[in-house]
Design a protein around this nucleic acid. Sequence first.
RNA 1: GGAGGGGUGGCUGAGUGGUCGAAAGCGGCGGUCUUGAAAACCGUUGACGGGGCAACCCGUCCGGGGGUUCGAAUCCCUCCCCCUCCGCCA
Length: 430
Amino acid sequence: MLSRDLLRDESAHVRTALADRGVDAALFDRWRSLDAERRETLGSVEELKRRRNEASKEIGAAKSRGEDAADRIAEVGSLKERIAALESRLSEVDESLAEVELSFPNLAHESVPRGADESANRVERTVGEPARFDFEPQAHWDLGPQLGILDFERGAKLAGARFTTYRGLGARLERALSQLMLDLHTSLHGYVEILPPFMVNGDALIGTGQLPKFAEDLFRVEPLGYYLVPTAEVPLTNLHAGEVLEESALPLRYTAWTPCFRAEAGSYGKDVRGLIRQHQFQKVELVQLTHPEASFEALEELTGHAERVLQVLELPYRVVSLSTGDMGFSSAKTYDLEVWLPGQDAYREISSCSNCTDFQARRAGLRFRPADGGKPRWVHTLNGSGLAVGRTLVAVLENYQRADGAIQVPAALRPYLGGLEAIGSDGRPA
RNA sequence: GGAGGGGUGGCUGAGUGGUCGAAAGCGGCGGUCUUGAAAACCGUUGACGGGGCAACCCGUCCGGGGGUUCGAAUCCCUCCCCCUCCGCCA
């Protein structure tokens, strides 16, 4: 949610900034007229209420003196009707206003490249050299089934398209990667590990910005109307919703491993093969609640924490600044980490790290009390994948494949696999 | 699923329908004392919205929503959440 002061006081700037994020200027104009009507109506209502309160006190005073107050009781009666009429209009306006405000995305930071889509994204740096293969590297959707560690067909049998079954060392590899990531973030990067609910209520999803606009991307669970989490960003960011934190508690750093569930409505036909786009995938998430003056610095750090996983696994990658048109709804600035996938001869997204500034904090009610005792202020929230586990497994398979069909195990991962050095071409320890 | 109890400020916790935005304590801030700190003592300290350059003024808020009343933290209805006991269960 954007600040109303900002929307009013810098309307010219906001109008173009929202246009950069794909919001029609007419919608912003609608906000302006609703806001003006709200303030005018509110002024009238409050004046009538003031008079009503005054008269009520007079009635109380008169009655305690044993006097008659029929004239003022009559006055209050007529005030009541006028107040009720104005209030019902006011609540209509408030509702429309909230609807419009909840549909505005966050404004992009000035450092974000402007553009309508991913073609305007900017590569910030490239780290590591793609390995050379003296054979034709295969894609994971061929490697996995050959090794017997990924079974797409049986995943489809159990649930449907975009579900996978991991088997044997495949399942173990996913678990080992998750463990390595959590250990790294908790012991080296100072994050507190959380095991949150995998289902949340609608308020949490409004808090982080998935609702009300992107309901079709979510799985809703009957009969109680919960939603499966699309990312641990939702429970982690909402952990302190409605609270006023102490400034000294900031920054708060949380990490969690969770499955993530995405309906991805309308995405059929895209990335149909393999593990890249699934209805369920596992992810280790990083979330920070920071002081507003520290958030952009924290974004660099958090991105570095996610990069660290790729470095430890010795996977080549690059860092990309998303353009205004490609960024997520709640973000003011986003870095995507793209890992090199030799089987597909391309860099593919494996992490997305965003500074949501005070956008989610306003929605979720995340504040801190300044150490000098001043008024509560909004914290800034950040989130990033550290990393998407399934895609990391894909990257390991494709980057560490050997001519004999086996998969070399990255050195950092071996302690998590009982010292295993390679997954043999038969899918067994080698 | 059944029975009962409860949701009040940053936190804990009082509150006969009529100056209750709400006692008290803790915490925070300022001060006295002290070389400094602690302790003690004194004072101060809610959020949101609207108006105003400002001092300040007004409105709303006691889990959410609705109702009764001239007037609701207090009475009624409804929903949500928490706790205790019973049942079921990994």
